[in-house]
Design a binder for these strands. Sequence first.
DNA 1: CGTCACATTGATGCCTCTCAAAGCTTGTGG
DNA 2: CCACAAGCTTTGAGAGGCATCAATGTGACG
Lengths: 187, 187
Amino acid sequence: MIPAPFDMLPSKRLKQFTAVKGTVLFREGDPTDGMFVSLTAAVRMERIGPDGELVTIHTVESPQSFAEASIFADRYHCDAVVLTEGDIFRIPTSVILDGFTDPEFSIAYNRIMSRQVQAYRQIVEIMSIRSAVERVYAAVVAGLLDTSVMNLSQRIALTHEATYRALRTLVSQGRLENPSRGKYKLP
Amino acid sequence: MIPAPFDMLPSKRLKQFTAVKGTVLFREGDPTDGMFVSLTAAVRMERIGPDGELVTIHTVESPQSFAEASIFADRYHCDAVVLTEGDIFRIPTSVILDGFTDPEFSIAYNRIMSRQVQAYRQIVEIMSIRSAVERVYAAVVAGLLDTSVMNLSQRIALTHEATYRALRTLVSQGRLENPSRGKYKLP
DNA sequence: CGTCACATTGATGCCTCTCAAAGCTTGTGG
DNA sequence: CCACAAGCTTTGAGAGGCATCAATGTGACG
């Protein structure tokens, strides 16, 4: 099922499909066709830089919406390539625009956008911390160690080795507890 | 005049005032009082890190809205300090919520939120680049060198020295041009 | 002119990345 | 039921790069 607030939209107008690895959802310059919600797929938004090199703009980890800004543009501003196979919804622009006639949808949609901005500000704040130990500590306090250490390390831009070493330091400092292998929690 | 889309709101319900440098609009933990739109003031959203150091979350360049997420929160999640004197609007939460009954406002407001999310995703991606040279290059390509090098270095979590050295390296590699002191542009 | 913020460059040390390897856990297939 | 693979966890050694401290130059502004 499509996550909130998009479940408030008429499901018949949403296009669900399974995208295999390597699928190009859209290319830079293509006429916009709506925004997307990935249920299980990973998608990379990328652009070709001045030197012809690949510039990653954003990597979509499911479930997440992306290309929201395309609603307000004539053409896509980057490429979107499927990294790992999974299910994706496409929401045509007209469906979103119609949705805004419903104040409830407008508020619900704005809420998740606001929350995203909040979350990104938190991540940016954490990534601004130079020390690996303090960065990991801030991330754990912020509740980012909700899945695996590998996942955390990627989200805060540290190698997994540095993250494990920071966790061990925090445990030895008594700032974290390590009840079992791979499990950490605040005292 | 207040910029779009907030000019669509009833102007009598908006609170305009002039804030002098150093004014604290709100502090982390204060009960929310609505969101803000800066007309001519520069405002820094900041938070005090674990070690007591200043962490810039976002620098508001006028005219721009900020603290949008406070509409859905009980309390502010950071401090807002005026950097340069100027006029600011405060928009009470109820005014925004009423605004969502107007589809035109909902769409216009969602547009700027989408842009913000887009910008944050890009920043996070750039901050994930380990090499200072490549990180600075990606930031310049993304158009983040719009004000000063000092400003850029803070936004991408590098010291200004490292940023200057990276810029010099990029110039020597021919990937950037340095027409005059402190000015850089793509070839 | 004096102050202040930005711009630039140098030297040094530490910290994180990198490469490498081994232990642990889970799941899968024979 | 066992063996093997694959992914996560943990630890080590070395090297390179960025932070740090320090200093000077430059431009804007009152």
